[in-house]
Write a protein that binds this DNA or RNA. Sequence first.
DNA 1: GGGTGATTAGAACGATCGTTCCAATCTAAG
DNA 2: CTTAGATTGGAACGATCGTTCTAATCACCC
Lengths: 193, 193
Amino acid sequence: MPWEKQFNVDDVLDKAMRTFWAHGYEATSVQDLVECTGINRGSLYATYGDKRELFLASLRHYDQNVRQALVKGLERECGPREAIRRMFQAFVDKVTVTGPNEGCFLANTALELSAHDAEVAKIIADAQKEIEAFFARMVTNGQSEGELPLSLNPDATAQGLLATLLGILVLARSRPDPSLLQSIADDAMKRLG
Amino acid sequence: MPWEKQFNVDDVLDKAMRTFWAHGYEATSVQDLVECTGINRGSLYATYGDKRELFLASLRHYDQNVRQALVKGLERECGPREAIRRMFQAFVDKVTVTGPNEGCFLANTALELSAHDAEVAKIIADAQKEIEAFFARMVTNGQSEGELPLSLNPDATAQGLLATLLGILVLARSRPDPSLLQSIADDAMKRLG
DNA sequence: GGGTGATTAGAACGATCGTTCCAATCTAAG
DNA sequence: CTTAGATTGGAACGATCGTTCTAATCACCC
């Protein structure tokens, strides 16, 4: 009954995100969210609205703090070719990590909800377009730096890389075999010449 | 109130499959299944067991009647290169069809359940391995028929094609843009030389 | 120290969940 | 005609769903 702590809105959102990420929208109950966040049911509704709004906030939180952070980090720290390679490696390595492998929250949600929820679909489509744009920039930069052959069409190459990356995310959930994913990623890199 | 019809076990399973396919496991209620199949709640439980068993039966039904049927049909009617091309085309064309686009039931389920249900994961992994084997056979056959370059490694190529196909399935749900999917498929074919 | 507002635990809401059961009704075989 | 078994509509089960609400408790400001 006693008052215990004031919560941080972003920390709580982060905890909710991890639960949605691991189990999906439908399989996560409000009770699960109450328990994983540690805050009260009433506070949850007062702060984030209903379950769907909290889910949308979680998805945007993931998009900013995981996807954007990854892209920006790679773009800052690596050369074009290495940035592409590490983007693939990030997801290949996730499988080898002990503990639960939740894949990519955005990809999981794409198949669960985006066909029936336009707002969700937009978040995901935008994220995918940004990854596609990232790949295209890396190809163009790589070409001007002489790291990648000029014969590559940046846009088409970026689309192919995106599709392969998404395919790896699907395979990672049903066949979490590091060597399989690694060889697909390596093969994708070979196609860059 | 009156007795109306004896149901066909396979027809009912087919109807249940389409509902699970469209909405996923969690978002489909037993009430939905009763309504879409048209048979009684009691008959449903007596015939197929509980919801999860019916889902597993639906997934196997899809695997046999959609995935296996597609693979066998292509392998029978087409040359190797054309079989690969049409495998991609099958999913690209699905998007342009009016009406709901449910994607691939196996891929949808891979992301929703296979991380938390070993029995589901096995069905999906086996199906993916068979598609991979199909691609590998087509590459090998294509090489011996002179349709495809001998420089291709059949196994690595098959893995890459599988990943690209799965990627198209993800994109189809969040960005159902025919020209995007078509260009990815075309690009994948170009990689075959 | 009294007031304000956030946060708490937890009850309560109606709806729906998956599942089981029942009495009635039908088909088909003996 | 009788019996057995399948199927029916529909009630009923306890559990859980998402959501709202209440009364008590806390921190903070004036």
